[in-house]
Amino acid sequence: MAYSDKVLDHYNNPRNVGNLDKKDPNVGTGLVGAPECGDVMKLQIKVNPETGVIEDAKFKTFGCGSAIASSSLATEMLKGKTVDEALQIKNTLIVNELSLPPVKIHCSVLAEDAIKAAITDYKAKSATPATAQTA
């Protein structure tokens, strides 16, 4: 099966691969997996607590080209958005942008799940005072 140019571009030059400090209270980490294909995706966001804007996003994905491209694109989309705006990102947006074929739609679903998981993690953390976390 041929990948679209955009998928290949993200696959060959993935944006924002890496790691953010998981212990940082402003960092939200989402870790999701798809048993079917064995793909695992970690997506992290760093949020400015004053403005609620996502200042940085990183990912590391083990999986097929489409999964890597989906998460790479997701981190690009996330930067500069507020947390609430980021929650509006739908997998269909990723599908359209990357022209994913039907068999690869689950990769974009995984990316959407990862975004939601990262935001959930961030919200849970920021709802708990930092002092209570260490206690």
């Binding site: 870790l31 999701v32 997996g33 798809a34 048993p35 079917e36 695992v40 970690k42 590391k60 083990f62 679903v109 995984l110 799940d113």
Partner: peptide, 22 residues
């Protein structure tokens, strides 16, 4: 039996899976 969702893998296992992949 082919249909699966990401929720099927419990988060505590996912962490280990990720580390193993690393």
């Amino acid at each position: 039996i082919g249909e699966q969702r990401s929720k099927d893998v419990p988060p505590e296992l996912l962490e280990e899976v990720f580390e193993l992949n690393m």
